[in-house]
Nucleic acid binder design. Sequence first.
DNA 1: GTAGCACTGTACGATTCCGGACAACAAGGC
DNA 2: GCCTTGTTGTCCGGAATCGTACAGTGCTAC
Lengths: 233, 233
Amino acid sequence: MLAVSPSSNRLLAALSRADLGLLQPHLKHGPLKLRQDLERPNRRIDYVYFPDGGFASVVAVQSNNTRVEVGLIGYEGMTGTSILLGSDRTPHSTYIQAAGQGQRIRTLKLRQAMEASKSLRMLLLRYVQVFMVQTAHTAISNARGRLDARLARWILMAHDRVRDETLPLTHEFLSLMLGVRRAGVTETLHSLESQKLIYTGTGRVTLRNRKGMERAAGNSYGTPEAEFRRLIG
Amino acid sequence: MLAVSPSSNRLLAALSRADLGLLQPHLKHGPLKLRQDLERPNRRIDYVYFPDGGFASVVAVQSNNTRVEVGLIGYEGMTGTSILLGSDRTPHSTYIQAAGQGQRIRTLKLRQAMEASKSLRMLLLRYVQVFMVQTAHTAISNARGRLDARLARWILMAHDRVRDETLPLTHEFLSLMLGVRRAGVTETLHSLESQKLIYTGTGRVTLRNRKGMERAAGNSYGTPEAEFRRLIG
DNA sequence: GTAGCACTGTACGATTCCGGACAACAAGGC
DNA sequence: GCCTTGTTGTCCGGAATCGTACAGTGCTAC
């Protein structure tokens, strides 16, 4: 058994030594591969993941198979919020969008640890609050934001989690995430590039001017991030 | 002290006798007036409400004051999900959209009851899961749905909660909820009316053909409702 | 080094929705 | 019954985005 050690996942890092000790024996570190499914719609969730690099997308699925991303989870968070809320499944889909690594734990073990420690439970539930705010702001952004602002917001959120200027993304994937045309993404990326906010290349987007990007995102970026700082640290 | 009695709020009704007994002494029944603020952005939440008629809207607010509804709460649910998640406030705004009545409880008392009973806690958290799915589907609907589908979805959700064919709503309010032009709402309502799905009149919309309305909503309606049935009953 | 394939650039008309304006109408207060 | 005020009906040009199509480009596997 390894010694209790902090993780680069910010939720795990925010845990008290005792709470981390509850989880530690059941955490297993491993790779998170591109496109790996972490949760499938309406199927039992077996593992909960705490990424420490890369990120996963939570995608809402309509019955006609229309898909749109509703949330993004990286080293600041965890998958499996429905587990925390007492459901063993969710109608959403969650999969890795940018490869990385992370800890995982069996849902049963997580549930046991949450019962054993109120402080652990409260921390994780505060993250659920953060995630709800993120989803809500995705909703407002989808309703009112122009494509350039939505795209800027998405790139900023991805950048926060990948912690690298270069994001490995195709226009096709961006269009799926935002629920818009692929061609629209291409055009809008050109627009952002001509404003010197990003560089683009095949299968990648490189952030060049973060401040400018935040300006381009308008008011669509920031509230969930502030909520994270307030509630987690 | 009144005897423990069931409520027409479905969450309260789903509680065990013992759990209801924990809340009952602190619940106070009263009117929920049109436009009454139940939660203000980033202000301490003092009371949590269990409506048994009418409904409240949860509205996400951007820093530039752009607003869009992200959720709708009636007799099937409760306000104050952030309280359940260990936060005493939220960046969102919650207020009554259709007047009614409901129970309210001080947040402190609710917290104490949740600590005292795991089953109570779990039931309320399952409702949070339902609400998250609702918000996620608002996001997908905002991203991909045409206005007629979004409007149909909204009217169906309001109808579910008001349990009356006639909804007291102005076009102006609908436009605020959906984040679109008021004139766009007028035109789209006419379209739904010409399809004999609704009647309209000043300050009201009457549902005429519910099945047809569900068809008009396309795939945007139903998933959160199914999640409610699965998790609450 | 080249074939294949995924990705990107660009074009087109069509459609949806916007922003703004203004007139007509309905309902409640006096 | 009239007036006021909020609500609805309608219009305009214009912007954003769609759906679709196809050609060009650049990686990768052989």
